[in-house]
Amino acid sequence: MTAGHSRSKRGDFGAALLFLLPNALGFSFFTLFPVAAAVALSLFDWNLFTEPRFVGLANFADLLGFRNTPEGWAPNDPRFWKFTGNTLFLMLGIPVNVAASLGLALLLRRGGRLQVTFRTLYFLPSICTGIGIYVMWQWLLNPDSGALNKILAVVGIAGPGWLKSYEWAKPGLMLMGLWSAAGGTNMVLYLAGLQNVPSELEEAAALDGAGAWGRFRHVVWPCLQPTTFFILTMGLIHGFQGGFDAAYVMTRGGPDGSTTTISYYIFQHAFRWFHMGYAAAIAVVLLGVIFVATALNWRWGSRE
């Protein structure tokens, strides 16, 4: 290795650092520092106006702990567990959304004259403003005058109360999620993934007598594993973090907290009731849950 070559490598390393620096600085300022601040804040009691009071792990004990009551052991904060349940329930929509995206991508892959038109139509919800979509679905899901129940009535089905009903509010939101997510980014990712499936493999499978299902199961699906893994990982992360905007616009977290997710609960504590330390504690727990879930998914996905 010559001295000139070594200098050149050092220079390249410096240039690489320089190009990484804006992103690294941005990440530090806008992500790393706020996360560290949130972790620190979770150890304090603070209402934004008075001096923060150090409370150690008390916020976490209030959040995750249980107490002995005359009726038996009960969580210190039953709302947190209820809203965690809501979040997990809403995440049940993720595999359905992924399957729908894959289905649409497979349909669009077949080509045809209207392929571009359909791609655009399916992708439209992703470029519409979220608030507009939520307001539109609020009306669609109106139990009395909403289009959905009117259509159900035509076929003799008495539609449920949707967003007005404790039992049906979450399925209503999941239905909306399916509509907006099926043709969105996931579909585009799958379309890209499908283009990388070697056509010769499919042709070979066809020559070997594999039908459409066989070709999909044994050729296409394995080739799409990396895409599916990425979509699921992102879906998990968004699922844990999600639900705030729809709940804020469409239900205010109701009825009876049935659509309140962890992120909405963080908002309530932080900006409705100004329990900044407690809100930070919930955020830290959420961070931990997302980390563990992603790690498990990563481990499982890598093995696959």
């Binding site: 609020q138 009395d144 109360g161 967003l163 007005k164 469409m250 239900t251 205010r252 109701g254 009825p255």
Partner: peptide, 8 residues
């Protein structure tokens, strides 16, 4: 009709 206890 059943009401929701919110400003909506």
């Amino acid at each position: 009709p059943p009401i929701a206890a919110s400003d909506l």
